[in-house]
């Protein structure tokens, strides 16, 4: 499976931010998105995940293969760490594997209510969701926010060995080097002309 994007244009709040974007990511490879705040990293990832419609262009991706992760990762404070993870595994129709608790260093926390975790710990729990839902294409929006150096290294190792090493794909928007041998894509090159009217709603009235 290859992620292939052609002529993609995306809009945030009705204003086009990226245009004519194209790239290919082969199995086992990652792509790092670069660009200043507001460049459209989050918007692009959400469109790739199918959470928002693109303005134009095509995304070649098998259905139900992508997983999106941002700082809002739907952790329920009153459920324990294991209960949170088991829910996502069951919802995505995957068998439960204990291994993920070790991969994300959560074994000692496994019965704690998620509400009592620190910011870094609950970030690890949020990322561990990616380990249980078994999706091939990970779309990661600043995955290392509030992680310490050791946790960043651990996550990078998981990404390299357990995900990319098994033929997975990752598209990552990050400012922190993860030590992945991944090409970078500077979104500044694809900045859309903000005056261009491509937003369907407004266009109908101009």
């Amino acid at each position: 499976m290859t992620l292939r994007v052609q002529g993609l244009a995306v809009a945030r709040g009705g204003v086009p931010v990226l245009t004519d974007l194209g790239f290919t990511v082969d199995p086992g490879h990652a792509l790092v998105l670069r660009g200043p705040n507001g460049a459209g990293k989050t918007t692009l990832l959400r469109v790739l995940a199918g959470l928002a419609p693109p303005l134009a262009g095509r995304i070649d991706l098998p259905p139900e293969s992508a997983a999106y992760a941002s700082h809002a990762d739907g952790i329920k404070a009153t459920l324990s760490v294991t209960e949170n993870l088991r829910f996502w595994a069951a919802l995505y129709g995957r068998p439960w594997a204990d291994q993920v608790l070790d991969d994300f260093d959560l074994r000692t926390l496994k019965d704690r209510p998620a509400g009592t975790l620190s910011a870094g710990q609950s970030r690890r729990l949020g990322l561990a969701r990616l380990g249980v839902i078994g999706r091939q294409v990970l779309l990661l929006d600043e995955p290392t926010v509030s992680l310490d150096a050791a946790s960043v290294a651990r996550f990078a190792a998981w990404l390299r060995e357990r995900h990319l090493g098994r033929g997975g794909i990752a598209v990552i928007a990050t400012h922190v080097p993860l030590g992945l041998d991944a090409p970078e894509l500077d979104l500044a090159w694809f900045r859309a002309d903000p005056a261009a009217v491509s937003h369907g709603t407004d266009a109908a009235f101009l």
Partner: peptide
């Protein structure tokens, strides 16, 4: 808490 889009992208 952001769970809704994650539920929406699940097979359900």
């Amino acid at each position: 808490d952001g769970a809704l889009p994650l539920i929406a992208t699940s097979p359900l």
